[in-house]
């Protein structure tokens, strides 16, 4: 077992990003229970971040901010997005969805208010209630997907997602009967291709779908989903 002194010797390497992932995990577990090392690591991290000030300071192109804020504002607005007709898409998405009567009928007017929370998710559901794991349909090689559903909330888990070029990301869509897909926001998979997202308040949502999209697009999917997870009726 790795001892206190040995782990303490690793703190500087962790703060500088020079430790291996395994060593970083060991240190993370250690500092969770060791106040002295936690305080020392905090100080060393601050010193390491000071190295960022030790380089020539450059102006950031305005286009970078514009691009970031475009995504941020669109995702912030996704709480109550307007309905947008997407001719032809329902057929592409519908082919991958479970056959249900009434799925993809004519566009209904308006959208019921729904609260969508989408975030990087580090754990499982808190509190009580039964959780059902629902397998999904994945069309891309090496990709697997499922959702853990409890009531109107779901945790979407996707693995094996390929990296996308700059300017593109994975967009999660909410699929309802008779409605066009609604964007729930962009998600960035980890370096291992793993994406985990939380969607809350899914009453009436029949499926979650994921498509690769240009960042900023929130109007409608532009390709067939590579992930579709049907949600059980409440």
């Amino acid at each position: 077992m790795t001892g206190h002194d040995e782990l303490r010797e690793l703190l500087a390497s962790v703060a500088l990003g020079a430790a291996t992932p395994e060593e970083s995990d060991l240190v993370a577990r250690h500092v969770a229970g060791c106040g002295d090392c936690r305080a020392e690591l905090r100080g060393l991290r601050a010193a390491a971040s000071g190295l960022a000030l030790d380089v020539p300071q450059l102006e950031v192109p305005a286009s970078v901010k514009a691009s970031v804020m475009d995504v941020v504002r669109r995702e912030a607005a996704a709480v109550a997005p307007p309905p947008v007709r997407a001719p032809g898409l329902r057929e592409r998405l519908g082919a991958l969805l479970p056959a249900r009567a009434g799925l993809w009928p004519a566009v209904a007017a308006g959208l019921a208010a729904v609260v969508i929370g989408l975030a990087v998710w580090g754990g499982a559901f808190g509190g009580g209630g039964s959780v059902r794991t629902v397998p999904g349909v994945c069309t891309a090689a090496g990709v697997s997907c499922s959702a853990e559903v409890r009531g109107d909330d779901a945790v979407l888990r996707v693995t094996g997602l390929p990296a996308l070029p700059a300017g593109r990301g994975y967009e999660v869509w909410l699929i309802r009967d008779g409605r066009d897909p609604v964007s729930a926001g962009f998600m960035a998979p980890g370096a291992d291709g793993r994406l985990t997202a939380v969607a809350e308040g899914l009453d009436g949502v029949r499926a979650l779908a994921v498509t690769p999209e240009a960042l900023g697009n929130t109007s409608a999917p532009t390709s067939s989903p590579i992930v579709t997870v049907p949600l059980p009726a409440a």
Partner: peptide
């Protein structure tokens, strides 16, 4: 690494 970063922490104590 440890000695260097600790020295930086002392010399850049005001950075935070």
């Amino acid at each position: 690494l440890r000695l260097g970063l600790e020295r930086l922490r002392m010399s850049m104590g005001a950075r935070e």
